[in-house]
């Protein structure tokens, strides 16, 4: 029976494949639809927030920070309401992380402010004495890639029906329009709250530093 397989490589391979695939077919596929439904009132990420999310991924914040509050009293006391599946409906990719060298960030927007983030990213120990987090000073000079963020918004709107407004359309002209009418004003608001003259000046000049986009994203996590 099985032993016959070792002499017939083709059927051996088929047998191995079926054995491996069985678990996935049973555990993963049936739940695909259900877990993907957004909670009521969940808005897709704005273009600026998406750009910030890309900064979060680029500097790999998830090396040390989770975005998943587990249903224990110690966690809900520390971070707030435990995480629900529907809250992640627009997270592509998910950013749960696997190691908390720093605290969970899933609801960081509830208890930190933009100027706290500005100080923290410039010099973490200035607001958290003893912090082992590196300073991310390059985020104050690097410019966020809002064009790629916009491209992603268009893609998820077209491919997955993520409910963005009518202004999110393919093409450079549509992008420039959204950049002027929405992204830059939103960034200016965040930069003003960050109380950093340099950042405000850059945003006014039409360049959004990475740290501003990142802060917009972190503020959104509630």
């Amino acid at each position: 029976m099985f032993h016959w397989l070792e002499k017939n490589p083709f059927f051996f391979a088929v047998g191995v494949f079926l054995t491996i695939a069985f678990a996935g077919a049973v555990t993963i596929l049936p739940h695909f639809n259900k877990s993907a439904q957004p909670v009521k009132g969940l808005k897709p990420y704005s273009v600026l927030e998406l750009a910030g999310r890309h900064v979060y991924i680029k500097d790999n914040c998830l090396s040390c920070h989770s975005q998943l509050i587990r249903p224990f009293k110690a966690e809900t006391d520390r971070y707030g309401q435990y995480s629900l599946s529907g809250e992640y409906a627009y997270d592509r990719p998910f950013l749960w992380g696997s190691r908390r060298i720093g605290p969970d960030l899933h609801r960081v927007g509830n208890y930190r402010t933009p100027d706290w983030h500005a100080n923290h990213m410039w010099e973490p120990t200035s607001v958290v004495p003893g912090s082992v987090m590196p300073a991310y000073k390059h985020q104050f000079t690097n410019i966020a890639d809002t064009e790629t963020a916009y491209a992603e918004a268009v893609t998820v709107k077209t491919a997955f029906g993520v409910p963005y407004g009518d202004d999110i359309q393919p093409g450079r002209a549509a992008y420039e329009k959204v950049l002027k009418s929405k992204v830059l004003p939103e960034a200016l608001k965040i930069a003003t709250q960050m109380k950093n003259k340099d950042l405000i000046a850059r945003v006014k000049a039409g360049k959004i530093p990475e740290v501003v986009a990142l802060t917009a994203y972190l503020e959104r996590l509630k």
């Binding site: 077919a25 049973v26 555990t27 049936p30 639809n33």
Partner: peptide, 14 residues
């Protein structure tokens, strides 16, 4: 439902 189906599939398969 898919839930029931996967449970049957699992029990019979195992």
């Amino acid at each position: 439902s898919m839930d029931q189906l996967s449970i049957y599939l699992y029990v019979i398969g195992s």
